Computed example of a mutant assay.
Amino acid sequence: MKRLAKWRLLPLFAVMALLAGCGEPFLSALQPAGEVAQLQFDLMLLSTAIMVGVIVIVTVLFIIAITRFRRKSENEIPKQVEGSHKLEIIWTAIPILLVFVLAIPTVAATFKLADVSPMDEKNEDGKTDALVVNVRANLYWWEFEYPNEEIVTSQDLIVPTDEKVYFNLIASDVKHSFWIPSVGGKMDTNTENINRFWLNFDDAAADEAGRIFYGKCAELCGPSHALMDFKVKALPRAEFDQWVTDMKAVTEPVQAETAEAQAGQEVFNNSCIGCHAVTPANTTPEAARMGPNLTDFGNRTLVAGILENNEENIKKWLKDPEAIKPGNKMTGKYDLSDEEIDAVTEYLMGLKVQE
C-alpha cells in the first residue's frame, strides 16, 4: 500500500512538469527576437546538443557493457581487463574536445555582448551617436531616461528596431534585474554600481509581435516582485524619431479640458505632483521622480504595469494600491475621496502625447 501511495504522486509530478513549460509566447526566451536573444539561443542549442550527445553515447556504451560482457553462468568468469591506454586516452580527449567546442563560442559571445564602447564615444555635441537609455529600477516600477534626447519616461520603454540600443542599469532601493525574455539580456540593477549592456530588437519579429515586447524583474525584490513588469514598444527608426519629437514638444503639463479633469488636475497638483512628473524633461528634480513619470499616461495600455489602462482600473489603483501591488511606495500617501478619485482619473486619462 505504501508503494501504491508513492506511485499516485507520479501524475502530480507529471502535471507540474507540464505546467513548468507553460507561459506566454512573448515571455519566452525560446522565441528569439533580436541579435542578443538569437546568440544566446544558439548557445543553448549547442550546449543541449552536446549534453544529449554525451547521454546517448554513455547510455549506448552502458547497454553494450551489460549485454555483451555480462556473466553467462555461475561458473564463468568474464575476461578481466584491468586497463586500456587507448580507451583512457579516448575518454579523456573527448570531454576536453567538447569543452573547447562549447567554450570557444561562449567566450566569443561573452566578449561580443560585453562590448559597450560606443557608449563612451562622444561626438562634437558631447553626446553619443549610439542610442543610450538609462534604466532605473524602483519598487515596483521602471524609469527610462534618454540622455541624448533629454527626455524621461516610465513603464513603457520605446526603442528603434534593427540597431543596437545601449543600457545603463541601476537601482534606487534594492537589487532588481532587467530582463526582456524574447529579446535577451537579464542583467542585475544594483544600487552601488552601474551595469551596462546592449540589445537589438529585430524589426520583423517586432512586427509579428504587434510591436510590443514585455519585460520583467528577474531578481526577487519584495512582495510585488512578480508584478514588476514593463512594456517595450519597438518601432521603426522614423516612428521612434517622431515619438522623441512629440515628447520633447511637451514643455508644460497638458492642460485639462473638461471641468472634472480640471478639478482632477488641481487635486493632482496638490497631492501627487511631489512624486510624479507630468513633463518628460530629464531636468526634473530627483524629488519629483519618486514615482513613475506620467507625461504620456493616457497613451499607455497598462496601469501599474499589470492592469489594462481603463477608467475602472485607474480608480481601483488610486483607491487601494496596496491591494494591487503589496509593498509599493504609494500606499498610504494619499487619502482621496471617491469624487477626487473620479476627477484625477479623468485628468490622467487625458495625459496624451500622441493621439
Results as ranks from 00 to 15, higher is better:
A5N: 12
K6F: 07
W7Q: 01
W7S: 02
L9H: 02
L10I: 10
P11H: 10
P11A: 11
A17Y: 13
C22K: 15
C22I: 14
E24W: 01
P25L: 09
S28G: 09
A29H: 10
L30I: 05
G34L: 00
G34M: 00
G34A: 00
Q38T: 07
L39D: 14
Q40I: 04
Q40R: 03
Q40A: 12
F41V: 10
L45K: 10
L46G: 08
A49C: 05
I50S: 04
G53K: 00
V54E: 11
V54T: 12
V54K: 10
I57Y: 15
F69N: 04
R71M: 06
K72V: 14
P78N: 05
G83Q: 06
S84C: 13
H85R: 11
H85S: 12
E88V: 09
I89K: 14
I96G: 10
L98M: 04
F100V: 00
A103F: 10
I104G: 13
I104F: 01
V107D: 03
A114C: 07
D115H: 04
D115W: 06
S117L: 02
S117E: 07
D120S: 05
K122N: 03
K122W: 01
E124L: 01
A137Q: 13
L139Y: 06
Y140S: 13
E145I: 14
P147M: 11
S154Q: 04
Q155D: 09
Q155L: 07
L157Y: 03
P160C: 02
V165D: 13
V165F: 05
I170S: 08
S172Q: 09
S172F: 06
K175H: 12
H176E: 04
G184Q: 03
T189I: 03
N190Y: 08
T191M: 14
E192Q: 02
L199K: 08
D203A: 09
A204Y: 12
A206D: 15
I212V: 14
C217H: 07
C217G: 11
M228T: 12
K231F: 04
K231G: 02
V232L: 08
P236V: 01
R237G: 01
R237V: 00
E239T: 06
D241S: 09
T245E: 04
D246M: 05
D246A: 03
M247H: 05
M247V: 04
E252I: 14
A256F: 02
E257S: 08
T258Q: 03
E260R: 14
A261L: 00
F268A: 09
S271E: 12
C272M: 06
A277E: 00
V278R: 00
T279V: 12
P280L: 07
N282W: 07
T284Q: 15
A287V: 02
A287K: 03
A288K: 00
N293G: 15
V303A: 07
A304I: 14
G305F: 09
W317P: 01
W317Y: 05
D320M: 11
P321D: 15
I324A: 06
G327M: 02
K329L: 05
K333Y: 15
Y334Q: 01
D335Y: 11
L336Y: 14
E339A: 06
E340Q: 05
V344T: 10
Y347P: 00
